[in-house]
Design a protein around this nucleic acid. Structure first.
Lengths: 247, 247
DNA sequence: CAGTGGTCTAGACCACCGC
DNA sequence: CGGTGGTCTAGACCACTGA
């Protein structure tokens, strides 16, 4: 019943409880263990990894704090229904959002080209000038209505597989989420009036207020992608929740 | 040298390490222990609280994870230079932001009244109809230029001290942050076109794109305050950063 | 009732780093 | 060198809750 630890292999770097934490987190984040799946009990892990129960507990507690697993007495520990990677990022995955609302989602690639970063691009993106990058632009629709314009840069040195990928159907954001690991992300949010070209593409009145999310993503300091996501103000609303760490 | 635990009193609720965590967090969050102040060593706390070192360590590690303290081998543990409560909230404290930019900040109270919540207000705010609330509206300026309009509701049952407070000079947001504890906050962010009245108050062109942040704050499920903060799109930009919990 | 997680202890060894 | 935090262990008792 319980999923197998592909190889219960520890990488030997850092504290044991951190190695165990990673060993358990990896298959969850990769989706190898389905949400809801049962994780071996602390006792079982004790024998699997040859560590004391306190050490196992420390690893699992950290995973529970991070929201990757849910722990229930008497029942055991389970892969969380919605791993937090998704909880954070899905806000920005408009396709998933549209689907959740029960509307028909479609993506339309408007432009795609590959080039070597000029100084301006390099500065914007945080890569060295001359780095090979892909630039894309596209349009997202819900039930046929345009709801978001996307402009995106992808660092081919960090995600070489993106070079051969055809984004004319599935949006690059979804593909990147699924195929390229990221460790850090930054969002800048602002409001702008739609220009003529933007208004035409989104089929809205010129000067309509739009929400712009500028997102940069890194994997261990290396820039992965830069994206500018522009939506009509009426179509989109962002939500953020915070809790005091000490109550 | 080390600050005193006012009374090293545990409240007796929940796990010992949680009690210890709270006992240490309290003076930090209240500002009784200045940033940079040294916290008693684990060994000292062991004797103070009569708990084992593992338990003390668990409490302090949690505080370090939450960012309230910084731990350094050989040196000891210290109150963090910028407790995270502020790090999160100061994004929304426009006065502090303006001051950091080196501009002159001013707040102007436009309206203030006290009334019992009607059904619409109650629903918006999450309180029972009839609850006594204060409604305020005001304008924030940086170097004389209007940069934000604020509309706010305050639950007087949760923050009775707000009833007698004069907000004509210092903004209610700052006062609430300093005087009322909160445990949860929610932000909704959207873009709107400025209406005529809004444009007049902000001294901008009608239809200018504006960023609206709607914020609700609770203390342990009890609504404290609701605020709608509206800024010209050109004047303000929100920033969010995320990290993967498991790298 | 019994299995699971939640917590606690006393003691241990180690790495780090200022003195 | 010695004090500090970082980690680990083996064992223990308890609370919870499904069967």
């Amino acid at each position: 019943m319980s999923p197998r630890l592909s190889p219960p292999v520890l990488d030997g770097t850092g504290a044991i409880y951190q190695q165990i934490r990673r060993a358990v987190a990896r298959p969850i984040l990769r989706g190898d263990w389905a949400p809801g799946a049962k994780i071996p009990s602390e006792h079982e892990l004790t024998e699997l990894f040859g560590a004391s129960r306190m050490t196992i507990n420390k690893a699992l507690s950290a995973l529970a704090d991070a929201g990757l697993i849910v722990r229930r007495r008497r029942l055991g520990s389970f892969v969380a229904e919605r791993p937090p990677e998704r909880a954070v990022m899905e806000i920005w995955d408009i396709g998933a959002e549209v689907a959740r609302a029960g509307e028909a989602y479609a993506f339309e690639l408007l432009e795609a080209r590959r080039f070597d970063a000029d100084p301006a691009t390099a500065r914007l993106f945080g890569v060295k000038p001359g780095t090979s990058v892909v630039e894309l632009s596209g349009r997202h629709r819900a039930d046929g209505t345009p709801i978001q314009l996307e402009r995106r840069l992808i660092n081919l040195e960090a995600a070489p597989a993106a070079a051969g990928k055809d984004f004319s159907v599935s949006p690059p954001g979804r593909w990147l989420l699924d195929h390229v690991a990221w460790s850090d992300a930054e969002h800048l949010i602002r409001a702008v009036n739609a220009g003529d070209e933007t208004a035409r593409l989104l089929e809205i009145e010129p000067r309509t207020a739009c929400l712009v999310v500028e997102r940069r993503t890194w994997s261990d300091r290396v820039p992965i992608t830069w994206a500018e996501l522009l939506s009509p103000g009426a179509a989109r609303q962002l939500v953020g929740r915070f809790s005091q760490p000490d109550a």
